[in-house]
């Protein structure tokens, strides 16, 4: 257990150093502001071009919150899968990690944690921009903070295990899959109701969204910040679930995915060892 904790702690520290010490703090801050704000501004402009309305409505807040929270999905999924490529091919240290007293599963979780920290910076900046510049309809005094915390803990856990699933897959891939994390995050963006309600999807695609823990995480997060009724009004297909049921589904689906990720990661690791992929370098 102490080895798992140490692996996690050291990897978090290492990941943070890699993410943040490439530039001086001012440049890092500019980078941290520009990227998330421009990302969310794409949607804001799209919304404004069509509706020409102000940004204080409930639907805008629904979309904005989903997009902002989704920064975590991109950060953690990309973080874990990229850590494999980075350590294997860039730093060429993956083989040394394997011969060290480190638990690789928790090492990767730690690298994901570092991305979570940089992601939190982006989320905080984007939320501040939304509240101050775009007048989002969120009343901080009315936020259900307990429900928010429970939703965040379960949501982050589900993203971590999804990241490990992707990490396992990346172990068996060449470097031209550098974008695998972004690709998967981009695809999930469609089906989990990040920027529009699931009801906007075609009927055959909706069950895919309903099977993902991310869907329940985003919905519970919105209910905690916007209020249950506002969120239910926008997303009727999820309105059938009570606040408690959402968290329960999130918990159960995360546990199932965690079990799957442990099994899949072990299998991928075995495959990678068998095929000599642990110290593979690919360069196209």
């Amino acid at each position: 257990m102490s080895e798992a904790a140490r692996s996690f702690r050291v990897a978090t520290w290492l990941g943070w150093q890699i993410e943040s010490n490439w530039a001086d703090p001012f440049l890092f801050l500019v980078y941290s502001i520009v990227k998330p704000v421009t990302s969310v501004m794409i949607l804001v402009v799209m919304y404004w071009v069509i509706t020409r309305t102000d940004t204080s409505g409930a639907y805008f807040a629904y979309m904005y919150l989903g997009n902002t929270a989704y920064i975590y999905v991109g950060s953690i999924l990309v973080g874990v899968s990229w850590a494999i490529i980075d350590d294997r091919e860039h730093y060429q240290t993956l083989k040394y990690i394997y011969i060290s007293p480190i638990w690789i599963y928790f090492y990767l979780l730690g690298r994901g944690m570092a991305r979570f920290l940089t992601g939190t910076l982006s989320v905080a900046i984007t939320m501040a921009f939304g509240l101050l510049a775009l007048k989002l309809s969120i009343r901080l005094a009315e936020v259900n903070w307990l429900y928010f915390a429970a939703s965040m803990i379960l949501g982050l856990a589900s993203m971590a295990v999804m990241g490990l699933l992707l990490g396992g897959a990346t172990l068996q891939m060449a470097r031209h899959y550098w974008s695998v994390g972004e690709s998967v995050a981009g695809a999930l963006y469609l089906v989990c109701g990040a920027i529009f309600p699931l009801d906007s999807l075609p009927g055959w695609l909706r069950p895919v969204g309903m099977a993902l823990p991310l869907t329940y995480w985003l919905e519970s997060l919105r209910r905690s910040l916007l209020g249950s009724e506002a969120s239910k009004g926008i997303s009727p297909s999820l309105a059938q679930f009570s606040d408690g049921q959402l968290l329960l589904i999130l918990l159960v689906s995360t546990l199932i995915m965690a079990a799957g990720s442990i099994y899949f990661f072990r299998w991928s690791e075995h495959q990678a060892r068998e095929k000599g992929l642990i110290d593979m370098t690919t360069h196209y």
């Binding site: 963006y189 529009f196 309600p197």
Partner: peptide, 13 residues
């Protein structure tokens, strides 16, 4: 799929 997300967003509004 990622591009489709923007398509459905436009459809939703």
């Amino acid at each position: 799929l990622s591009t489709a997300a923007y398509v459905f967003f436009y459809r939703a509004i």
